[in-house]
């Protein structure tokens, strides 16, 4: 497959999704736009409730029944995925877009042999004989690093450890030979040493199969490991987007600052900069900048008017009034500046 690195494979434009709930509509996603280029990994970072998982579910066509896509487009291969029928989605899901879930145990059928679970997907995607399907399944299991694939082919999910289960989920996601892989917090439920192995595996298969990856996580360490570009989400919006370097070394949005400085790394000694308060209630999203109420650098306008997305470089955008020419000059918090210096200095 020839790779054009600048070819956009997936484009999300001004996506707005709400949920019907007791007490009103929860505005989970409020105008999200991003794109995915061929062969790259785009990370979406945010806390629970920031709308990152909901956006991904919309791409996969697996939104909960009480969700409403209010506006926006998801462009993929000349289609608008927000308008594709459930039947057509069957052909896209698994075959062209693969998904890896957070919890490998609930993603697998507990009473079906794992070999069967992989071959089932193979049969769904193409007309092949069962020997060929088994052969391909064993290949896949080998590719995702499951030892003794022949023996394990006939085992049940409970006979596997968490890491191995996640490998099976990855094998199933790869079975339809997709071109986009969506990972929804695939390592959150795993131990760090297992997490490291799974991340390595995802990076490896991404290279081998020229996949484009959307990676959802709240762990900035994982983002640094995986992502070419990063979108930071807060309260249903992307507040900052840029390349990994731009986000980690030249963050512009106060929320990104707060995220970066709120977690200790192995060298941290100073007091952490905690983000005070709690995320807003998305039934009544605040006027202006949603982060304003928790933002030490909030200005009057932050409570009145939503900030536009200011361009900082061709790849770097941030939605904060601090970038307005009339805004007072605010320096990075000392803790963060020191940390960035230290990070740049690391070999």
């Amino acid at each position: 497959m020839a790779i054009n690195p600048n070819e956009t494979v997936l484009k999300v434009e001004d996506l707005r999704i709400s949920f019907k709930a007791y007490g009103g509509m929860v505005q989970a996603v409020r105008g999200v736009s991003f794109d995915l280029k061929r062969g790259e990994t785009v990370a979406i970072v945010g806390e629970s409730g920031s709308g990152k998982s909901v956006s991904i579910k919309a791409i996969m066509g697996i939104l909960a029944p009480n969700a409403v896509i209010e506006s926006g487009r998801i462009e993929y291969d000349g289609m608008d995925l927000t308008k594709v029928s459930e039947e057509d989605f069957h052909k896209i899901r698994g075959n062209r877009i693969g998904l890896i879930f957070q919890d490998p145990l609930s993603a697998l059928n507990p009473i079906m042999k794992i070999g069967k679970q992989i071959t089932e997907v193979l049969h769904l995607s193409k007309k092949i004989s069962s020997e060929e399907a088994k052969h391909r399944a064993l290949e896949l299991m080998h590719a995702v690093g499951i030892p003794e694939a022949e023996r394990r082919f006939n085992q049940y999910p409970f006979q596997f450890s968490g890491g191995m289960r996640q490998r099976i989920v990855i094998a199933i996601a790869l079975a339809g030979d997709p071109e986009i892989l969506i990972c929804d917090e695939p390592t959150t439920a795993l131990d760090v040493t297992v997490q490291a192995k799974i991340l390595e595996l995802i990076n490896k298969i991404k290279e081998e199969r020229h996949l484009s990856v959307i990676f959802i996580t709240h762990d900035l360490g994982v983002v640094a490991n995986m992502a070419d570009r990063v979108n930071v989400m807060y309260a249903g919006k992307i507040v900052e987007s840029g390349t990994s370097e731009e986000i980690f070394f030249e963050p512009a949005h106060p929320y990104t600052w707060a995220l970066l400085s709120s977690m200790p790394d192995l060298q941290t000694k100073e007091r952490l900069l905690a983000i005070p308060g709690t995320p807003p209630n998305m039934i009544y999203p605040p006027a202006g900048d949603a982060f304003a109420a928790r933002n030490k650098y909030a200005m009057k306008i932050d409570f009145e008017k939503e900030p536009p997305s200011f361009k900082l470089s061709d790849t770097h955008y941030a939605s904060t009034w601090l970038l307005h020419p009339k805004a007072p000059k605010v320096d990075l918090p000392d803790v963060l500046r020191a940390r960035i210096e230290r990070m740049k200095g690391a070999k």
Binding site: A298, K300, K326
Partner: peptide, 10 residues
């Protein structure tokens, strides 16, 4: 936008 909009409030 007026200058006054850009006062720090918190």
């Amino acid at each position: 936008l007026p200058e006054s909009s850009f006062e720090m409030v918190q």
